[in-house]
Every structure is written in C-alpha cells, then in structure tokens.
C-alpha cells in the first residue's frame, strides 16, 4: 500500500512536468519566428474585400495556440448573427497568412443553420495567423484572427 502511494507520487511528478511544459512554450511565443503576411495572403484578402472594409468584431475564431502537427489543426468559428432571412451570415472564409494557398476554405450558410457556426480541420504550413472572415447577407465583412504555433509543419514526412 505504501509502495503504491510512492509510485502514485512519482506518476504525479511526471504528469506535473508534462503539464508545466506548455508554459515554456508560451514564453517562446512572443514569436521571433513569425513572418510578415505573405503577398498571396494580402492579395486573397484584397480580392475578398473587393473594396469593402473588413471590421474586427462579431467573429470568434477558436484555434489552438499550439498545433502539435500542422497536418491537421481543428478550429471552430462562431459569428454573432441572428441568422434570419433578413440578417444572416452568407459565407465564412478561412484565410492563412503563410500557406502556399491563402484561402483554406469557404463555408456557405443559410438562415436554416440557426446558428452561425462551423468547425473543420486545416493544414498549417508553419507558425502563423489564421483569419476567419464572415460575409453577411448585407455584404458587410467581419473578422477574427488567431495565431497558432506549429510544432511540426504540414508537408514534412518524418516517416
């Protein structure tokens, strides 16, 4: 019985170490490796905006701060919208600042969604900002961005 207790304590110490690990990661996050947005991203954003202002509000982008593997990073997007025929989200665009193709996907909603919500898994080529831009039925554009630190980039095969 005593032995079991000691072993438990060791297990806890190991777990504590693994729980503390993300803290050191966060310290590295004021990220000197962050690159400026790619020209491809800026171009895609300009085409999407088509002269309209993109305002930072109404959209919530839930993206892991730390992506263990860039091959699949699951994100969630919520937009504050009544989702009525008169006022709803028409399309949610996901844009990447550093992927070889800036647009990751487009999700077209209707008032029948009830809620402006979508979740999917994306590829991230490297540590970067991801943008979720919501296009409303009145044509206005709203966005949120989030940074994800990518431990292992998409497209590298480690066997």
């Amino acid at each position: 019985m005593t032995l079991v207790r000691v072993d438990r304590r060791q297990a806890l110490a190991t777990l504590a170490a693994s729980l503390l690990a993300p803290v050191t990661v966060r310290a590295a996050e004021s990220d000197p490796s962050m690159k400026p947005p790619s020209a491809l991203y800026l171009q895609a954003r300009t085409v999407l905006a088509n002269g309209r202002e993109i305002r930072t509000a109404r959209v919530t982008l839930d993206l892991p701060r730390l992506a263990e593997n860039g091959n699949s990073v699951t994100l969630k997007i919520d937009v504050a919208s009544p989702m009525t025929a008169a006022d709803h989200v028409r399309t949610i665009h996901i844009l990447s600042e550093q992927n070889p193709i800036a647009t990751i996907g487009r999700f077209h909603l209707t008032p029948r969604a009830g809620r402006a919500f979508v979740s999917t898994s994306v590829r991230l080529a490297t540590t970067q900002n991801v943008h979720a831009i919501a296009e409303m039925s009145d044509g206005s554009l709203w966005e949120a961005q989030a940074e994800s630190v990518v431990l292992i980039a998409a497209c590298i095969d480690g066997g």
């Binding site: 990447s96 070889p100 990751i104 996907g105 590829r123």
Partner: peptide, 8 residues
C-alpha cells in the same frame, strides 16, 4: 463548403 488544399 468549398475546400482548398489547406483542408486536412
């Protein structure tokens, strides 16, 4: 949905 190669 329109998927691009960035979808996992």
């Amino acid at each position: 949905a329109d998927f691009m190669p960035g979808i996992a």
